[in-house]
Design a protein around this nucleic acid. Sequence first.
DNA 1: TAGATTGTTAATCGATTAACAATC
DNA 2: TAGATTGTTAATCGATTAACAATC
Lengths: 232, 232
Amino acid sequence: MLPNIFKFGIAIYIIALKNSRNSQTKNMERLPDKTVERLSKYRRALFASMIEGKTHIFSHEIAKMFHITPVQVRRDIMLIGYSGSQSKGYYIKGLTELISNIIDTPEGIRAAVVGMGNLGRSIIGYFNGKRTKLTIVAAFDINPEKVDKEFVGVNCYQYDRLSEIIKKEKISVGVITVPAIAAVNVAENLIKAGVKGILNYAPKSLNVPSTVYLEEYDMITSLEKVAYFVKH
Amino acid sequence: MLPNIFKFGIAIYIIALKNSRNSQTKNMERLPDKTVERLSKYRRALFASMIEGKTHIFSHEIAKMFHITPVQVRRDIMLIGYSGSQSKGYYIKGLTELISNIIDTPEGIRAAVVGMGNLGRSIIGYFNGKRTKLTIVAAFDINPEKVDKEFVGVNCYQYDRLSEIIKKEKISVGVITVPAIAAVNVAENLIKAGVKGILNYAPKSLNVPSTVYLEEYDMITSLEKVAYFVKH
DNA sequence: TAGATTGTTAATCGATTAACAATC
DNA sequence: TAGATTGTTAATCGATTAACAATC
């Protein structure tokens, strides 16, 4: 039998634990990396299900679409503070709206693509007209033949106007799709102009200050990786 | 004081542990995912250093290029069984050759791109003429205007010839750059035709048998993720 | 020797998964 | 009740990092 002082101490500890856990899950400042990625994918899948006429969805149905486990789906949803019902699963409309509230900002995020090559055009094509809260509002290139032309509604500016346009258009995210040799300079100019996030597709790793969020993806490495695992 | 029987047992256990560790590091069947990715990047960085006239490189120099720690670099290099010297670091030529032996196959890997849009052309452009062991040898599209035309040396075939060409050209890796709606069908046909690895860029998650290696990347999700972390 | 680097182990961290009570 | 699902915790797994002996 524990003395009373210990029982009391344990009771307080359990309450403190509960509270900290709730605040962690419900009012989380910053969701885990992987959860954010998955929420973006869930949202698209939920939209598609809605179009098909569904109103509710089970965790295992979502899980199957992304070859992950139902527990993972439930954890992600729990983390953002949404609840489902054991009989019907999750209400698609409500869940979609909550994810949008979390991922989007009311004012929206404005992005620019630097490098109007095939990859740059590809990204603009993906986004154009599909989203309202995240939009690509400008493109840049050094090639005079590409400058001052529109591609699916996005104007391409001369690269030396980068800083001017970024400030004028209130652009906070830059997508780098220039050759590796130019990437460092582009990143520096984007940061100087005030962007707060960079998505770098050049096959050259960048260094950015900690105030800027950097995400890198390298197609050459990915294809070499697939080749390696095909061989093994 | 332990009885002798235990001392003996412990000695044998330690030796067994040592051996299993060595065989794990030196003759590993399959390297960890992340190590493969990094080796691909190291190789490119080492090539660049060689061109600059360097013969040796330290772990911290490599680490700095990819914002990782020197320990990670040393671990990766240890894992593939290469050794450096404490005074000079790693011999670039030797390390590059070892990485190539591990990542490449002597016969090379032949890849195809399905979907000759901006993204497909972008990937072909990255690879064309740069590598000898990993080559894109064919492209496919359903648009008759794109068919039977060459793009930087790669011919674009009509999509319904997929199976025929994949077998004829001994293609083992397929890169999917078609719209989401077509991705599932393309993957099925690639697998039926015999490819063993798929790199999927369509914003639609695929299901493949366990004999096929699948790597997926979704540009929309990546940009939404950057937007989220810019906001927070 | 002093200083720097490699090779290696143990500790830590982050994310996934197994398991199960609570609920419908 | 039986069966299925959600919400949640503890265990597990994989990868990174801290620490340090050995070496030059």
